[in-house]
Design a protein around this nucleic acid. Sequence first.
DNA 1: TACACCTGCAACCTGGAGGTTGCACATGGC
DNA 2: GCCATGTGCAACCTCCAGGTTGCAGGTGTA
Lengths: 101, 101
Amino acid sequence: MFAALGDETRLALVARLCAAGPLSTARLAEGAAISRQAIAKHLEVLAGAGLVRRGEGGPGRERRWEIEPRRLDEARRALEQISRRWDEALERLRAAVEEEP
Amino acid sequence: MFAALGDETRLALVARLCAAGPLSTARLAEGAAISRQAIAKHLEVLAGAGLVRRGEGGPGRERRWEIEPRRLDEARRALEQISRRWDEALERLRAAVEEEP
DNA sequence: TACACCTGCAACCTGGAGGTTGCACATGGC
DNA sequence: GCCATGTGCAACCTCCAGGTTGCAGGTGTA
């Protein structure tokens, strides 16, 4: 999942989908400097990581993509857990140093 | 920065440094299945992203690496900002839909 | 019907990330 | 002094992520 967010193009896609709401592949490719298929591949990757979902977009020809905000929360929580472990480790080190002499 | 956390090996390194406190390259390479130089390269990348810092480790031969917890907070804040933008976009969409008819 | 879009699939190319090996240098213990 | 250990640098290899091109299939609109 961090790997999915790690690519700048994909991070920009996520940000844009967040700011503008659900958009189709073609619409997302309009502004970008790369081809529509490249965008589509990135969206595949984001979908694989659960960060994005294909909206139905009606039975018609347009299929819009939308953000899955739960995954962003999960990522945030993972970072919180890691930094909490860091604090605990520091505390343990401090205690060990104070006991030793 | 997300790219730095995106690699599994590097994420494991960060988690391990958080759990066990500052460690030297050789110590980190002991358990891993890859060579010491590979670990060193990953640590370079993490340092380039500001997620990790070279401790002095005395003037001696050991140089330990330690976590830079501020960067983890920054990453968390970035995710918060993105998901907040998403909520705002949803709100705007809702308002637009209600006004149209 | 014909035309204009939007989409999906597959083959193909290329640069750089991830990894290894080999060597040289410094430091600490005997 | 000698050896073990921790480190840094550089050349080299391999593979896949990111990107492109080309084509075929659906779906609205005139």
